[in-house]
Computed example of a mutant assay.
Amino acid sequence: MNKAPVPAPDFAPSSAAFTAAGLPYPLLVEEIAQLLQDPTVQVPPRLVQALAGGGSLFVMPAMDAHCAITKLITFTPANSSRGLPSIQGDVLVFDVATGQRRLLLDGPTVTARRTAAVSLLAAQRLAPRKDGPLLIVGAGVQGKAHLDAFAEGLGVREVWVASRSSASAAQLVRHAQGLGLVAREVTDANAALADCPLVVTCTPASGVVLSALPRDDVFIAAVGAFTPQMVELAPSLCRHIAEVGTVVVDTVDAGHEAGDLLQAGLDVARFASLADVVRQPGFSAPGPVLFKSCGWAGWDLAAARTALKAAA
């Protein structure tokens, strides 16, 4: 006698591989652009609770007409010395109509891929030159995600990597070479600015990593600093681009989160957001461009929408 089939679970496992498979960069970038034009999207302020030992707990809800999500993650900077990920947690995805849980996604994978996809969308719309070389400052999870995204979405063929850890830089260089890219480690990120029209900074943001004035045709995606106390870019660099070029923030929430810009004494509220760029065809971005990314639960919602479509 044949056994009855076992019902499929009502949600998918939160493995990194499952999550990554549901978030291909081309579809994720497209979904982010669509989300920025969706009037049903709601993103309440995120809760950031300090934890004993220097970590933080993030509770990040977001919703649209069909889908509601909450990202629950911890950020523990000290984990880098323990050999553990600095970001851990999950993204829970619910159906608005029924309240049923639809997906359970790996939080670090969502964070890495949606952050890189947001930078890629900004680069596609704003970068004066898209051919590279690409300079990546910081060779951790975000460095790898941005390398993958820019190689796939911009066609970058050459990558320079700068990191405090030569071992991490060498590992990322080998990964790039495995993708068929020309890649090398550089020890002076400031000197490399003269040769690289594409730049991503994705460090722990514990101190300034770029201070030299960049090329006039540069696009910098500054990712690491997402609190007023964090910083990657020198105030003089930020003020220079604000004076002669274009500064764009990922969301209006950057007004109280963008440490690089706040520590430069800039009025963040006067800068355009990525939503302005997407909603205005032919958005003008003269001169060097600085895209300041701080993170937003709306990006996690876009990732959930992408993963739901992939699962369907």
Rank of each mutant, 00 (worst) to 15 (best):
C67L: 04
C294V: 15
G132W: 09
P133N: 01
L193N: 02
K292D: 04
A149T: 07
G178C: 11
P61D: 05
A68H: 14
P108V: 11
I241K: 09
D95M: 00
I32E: 07
K309V: 09
V48R: 15
C294R: 03
D64A: 06
V268N: 12
L308W: 10
V268G: 08
R113H: 04
K292A: 00
A275H: 09
A191F: 06
T109M: 09
D216G: 14
A269V: 01
E232Y: 05
N2C: 03
L193D: 08
V110R: 12
G132E: 02
A176M: 02
V268S: 02
R279W: 10
L23F: 01
A97C: 06
H240W: 15
M1L: 09
A139F: 12
A189Y: 12
L120R: 01
V41S: 04
L134D: 05
T111P: 07
W296V: 05
A21C: 13
T203K: 11
D216I: 05
T251E: 02
A275F: 05
R305E: 08
Q49S: 10
V91G: 04
E257V: 02
C238V: 08
E152R: 10
V41P: 03
A149K: 01
Q88I: 14
S236A: 15
V208L: 11
H146G: 01
G107K: 06
P44G: 02
R101M: 14
G295L: 06
T246V: 03
Q229W: 04
L134A: 04
F150P: 06
G55C: 07
S206T: 13
L198K: 03
V200D: 02
M60R: 13
A169Y: 11
S293I: 14
T251S: 12
K292T: 06
